[in-house]
Amino acid sequence: MPTLATENRLPSPDDFYEALIDTHRDLTAEQSGMVNAKLILLLANHIGDMDVLREALSHARKGV
C-alpha cells in the first residue's frame, strides 16, 4: 500500500514555488482560490489512491 511521500522529491523546489506564485499572479482572491481547488483536484486524480489522499488531507490539516 502506498504511503504519502513527505520528503522533498522535487529536483528544484524553488522552480516549482516560482511557478506556483506565477500561476496566482494578478488573480483576485476568488480566482486564486479556484486555481488552488482545480490544482488539488487534478493532483488528487493523478495520485488516484484514496488512502494516500486521506493521509495527505490529515497531514495538511495538522497544526491549523
Rank of each mutant, 00 (worst) to 15 (best):
R61C: 08
R61M: 12
L39R: 12
M1N: 12
S58L: 08
V52E: 14
D26A: 05
S12K: 14
V64F: 03
V52Q: 15
L53Q: 09
G33P: 10
E18T: 00
L42N: 07
G48A: 15
T28W: 02
A29Y: 02
G48Y: 06
A60D: 03
L4I: 03
P2E: 11
L41F: 10
E18A: 03
M34D: 09
S32L: 05
N8E: 15
A44D: 04
Q31S: 07
R9T: 09
L39V: 10
L39E: 07
A44K: 06
T3W: 01
R9K: 12
L10G: 11
F16Q: 11
T6L: 11
N45G: 08
I47G: 01
P2S: 15
L39W: 04
H59E: 03
T23G: 09
I40C: 02
K62L: 09
A44N: 05
L39Y: 12
G63Q: 09
D51F: 00
Y17R: 13
T23V: 13
L53A: 05
E7N: 15
D22H: 12
Q31A: 11
P13S: 14
L39N: 10
I21A: 10
Q31W: 02
R9W: 01
H46F: 03
T23A: 09
S12A: 15
D14V: 00
L10V: 08
H24K: 09
I40A: 01
L43M: 12
D22N: 09
M34P: 07
Y17A: 15
P2H: 13
I21F: 14
L43P: 14
A44V: 04
S58E: 07
P2R: 12
L4N: 08
E55C: 02
S58C: 04
N45M: 07
L27P: 00
E30L: 07
M50L: 09
M34K: 13
D26L: 06
T28S: 04
R54W: 01
G48H: 02
G63I: 07
S58F: 01
M34S: 08
